[in-house]
């Protein structure tokens, strides 16, 4: 049974594309045939994060309009088997995502893939609503910060009222909270909302906590999903989140502030 997972947040810049790339890669690494779709029409970026920007020939809108078929538009990842990238259009307007067109493409993908990851644009406009419409599950990417939490709450409301499952009175979309850019040091100092705070406010089950990490920027610089950086805390935390999504029990890691040793304090190495 194929599953559509929408990565969404309401607010921009919280890590939706980073998470989409990491999740898709993690699911594919575990043997699931996975495609990750960029829904941010006009602001294509998933191709860069996945490092396939020079291999884009046809895009989502070309397929919707019938100018190309799916096989021509899907880009097969060279690092991980079973992983495909479906880029969006850079030029046309957002309304190009017609409801019928998107439904047709999603249904065709459902026949061929185990997981369809939808990387939502920010906001609550047409693009974001289209990205969440077909969701069977949704991962709400949230930073421990007031505007991000508020926008996540807004998006949860949208999932409950505007998704296909809501419209057709099916079982509701499975919702998961992914906390990103978490800094245990700042939480201990009382400068940042804690995991418990965010969970209490949003009351959505937690799928993972990604610590603030330099590895995320390094990975995007080189076009490599951060989950492939198995030396980094962020990469490991994404691996754990994917494992939890697939039903494994894993303890949350990197939630305690690192104690700086005297040497590190003296020489200023983080």
């Amino acid at each position: 049974m194929s599953k559509v997972i929408t990565i969404t947040s309401g607010k921009g810049g919280v890590g939706k594309t980073t998470t989409s790339a990491a999740f898709a890669t993690g699911l594919a690494q575990r043997g699931n045939k996975t495609v990750v779709i960029d829904f941010d029409v006009g602001l294509r970026n998933l191709d860069l994060i996945m490092g396939v920007e020079r291999r884009v020939v046809f895009d989502f809108i070309n397929v919707i309009n019938g100018d190309a078929n799916l096989n021509q538009a899907l880009i097969k990842d060279k690092r991980v088997d079973n992983l495909y990238i479906f880029p969006t259009s850079q030029t046309r307007d957002k309304d190009a995502l017609s409801k019928e067109g998107v439904a047709r493409v999603i249904n065709e993908l459902r026949d061929n893939f185990d997981y369809i990851i939808c990387d939502s644009p920010a906001g609550i406009e047409h693009g974001a609503l289209t990205a969440l419409y077909h969701a069977d599950a949704a991962i709400i990417v949230t930073n421990p910060e007031v505007s991000s939490v508020r926008d996540s709450d807004r998006i949860l409301g949208m999932l409950a009222s505007k998704s296909r499952r809501a419209e057709e009175n099916e079982a509701p979309v499975d919702e998961y909270l992914l906390l990103t850019r978490y800094s245990p040091e700042r939480v201990e100092r009382g400068e940042m909302l804690s995991i418990e705070d965010v969970q209490e406010i949003l009351s959505v089950p937690l799928i993972g906590v990604i610590p603030e990490s330099e590895a995320v920027l390094k990975a995007s610089n080189t076009g490599m999903p951060v989950i492939l950086d198995t030396q980094s805390t962020a990469g490991i935390a994404y691996g754990d989140a994917v494992a939890r999504f697939l039903g494994e029990q894993r303890e949350m890691r990197f939630l305690k502030a690192q104690k700086k040793s005297l040497l590190r304090t003296l020489f200023g190495k983080a």
Partner: peptide, 17 residues
């Protein structure tokens, strides 16, 4: 704590939401 702005954030969020 003197610098505890996180609890202020939480209270504000709970009210507005």
């Amino acid at each position: 704590k003197r610098n505890d702005t996180a609890s202020v954030a939480k209270e504000r969020l709970q009210i507005v939401l």
